[in-house]
Amino acid sequence: MNAIIVTGGDIDISLLENYIAENKEDIIISVDAAITKLEKINLIPHIMVGDFDTLSDDDRLKKYAELDVEIVKHDPVKDFSDSELAVDRAVKVGIKNIAVFGALGKRFDHAFANILILQKYKKLGVDITIYDKYNKIYVKSNHFILERGKLWGKYISFFSLEEKNFMEKLEGVKYPIENRIIDNIATPSLYISNEIKGDKLKATFSGDLLVVESRD
């Protein structure tokens, strides 16, 4: 079972609509005022999560409750963001793969927290991918293969989530790597904007890496 979480940042509505159409069996979770974006594509979520401080519309919540949407309302004074609470709600019912839309946008504090959430849940065995029009962001552990035809855009970048990672080998790319350290302090931008040149990228490394596939 997979989930799609729609939260309050910037969203390309056509991208969201197409993704939902291609993943019709996924559970859809709306975070706080993101319900207004789902309404633009006439879509009713399965679950609504949040403190609803930016929605402030009891009539709307009542309407969705009458449509058998599960409403999970939290106190505005809390230790977790609405987005993290939505992820937690999905994980508690056994979901292991989550796509998130709207995790990036004007509020960098929220965007950065959402990036950190990826690693937290990766360590719990949950794969979360953040999508927007230009980026696909996720965490990989130890090794992976990526086919060129499945790349989100032209570029792929790597960042350590543990201050330093040892990259044993990165092949099939414009700038191959062998036996190098990915060090966010010494060389924070060294491993950005690589490109797949062969049929596929193959990476072998230690620990967790933040991977960003991007396009202009």
Rank of each mutant, 00 (worst) to 15 (best):
K164H: 09
I98C: 01
V91E: 07
K120Y: 15
N165P: 15
H110N: 11
S157E: 10
G94A: 07
K123C: 00
T187L: 09
S83C: 09
K150P: 00
R180N: 04
G149L: 12
E162I: 06
I185K: 13
K164Q: 12
N135L: 02
E147I: 03
A99T: 08
R89H: 14
S160Y: 14
Q119D: 09
F112I: 08
Y131I: 07
M167G: 02
N179T: 08
D88S: 13
G94K: 06
V72P: 00
G105I: 09
Y121W: 11
V126F: 06
D183S: 12
A111W: 00
K122E: 12
F158V: 00
K78G: 09
K133Y: 15
L118W: 04
Y121L: 09
V100C: 15
R107T: 05
K120D: 14
L118T: 12
K122P: 00
G94D: 08
I181F: 05
R89P: 02
L85W: 02
S157T: 03
V77Q: 15
N165G: 13
D75V: 03
V126W: 02
K140D: 03
V173F: 04
R107S: 14
N97M: 01
E171P: 01
G105S: 13
S141N: 14
Y131P: 03
D79R: 05
L190Y: 00
G125I: 05
N142T: 12
I137N: 02
S160F: 14
K92Y: 02
I95K: 04
V139F: 03
V100M: 14
F101S: 08
F101N: 06
K174G: 01
D79A: 13
D132G: 01
V100T: 11
Y131V: 11
L124M: 13
F144S: 11
F166E: 08
G102K: 05
R180I: 08
N179L: 12
I117G: 02
K136L: 02
S189E: 05
S189D: 04
I130P: 11
V77W: 04
V77A: 12
K73G: 05
D88W: 03
T129G: 03
G149K: 15
N184S: 09
G172I: 04
Q119L: 15
K92F: 03
L85F: 10
K123M: 12
R89I: 09
I182Q: 06
S81F: 13
H110T: 13
D79M: 11
D82N: 07
K122I: 08
K140G: 06
P188N: 12
E162Q: 14
L151M: 12
E168D: 09
F158E: 05
I145M: 00
V139R: 05
I117A: 05
F101V: 10
I181S: 04
F80W: 08
I128S: 02
S157A: 08
A111D: 10
N142W: 13
E171L: 06
V126T: 01
N97W: 01
G153M: 04
F112Y: 07
L116G: 08
V77D: 15
F158W: 00
E84F: 03
N97I: 04
K154M: 07
N97F: 08
V87C: 07
K120C: 07
F108L: 15
F80V: 06
E163T: 15
A99N: 06
L170V: 04
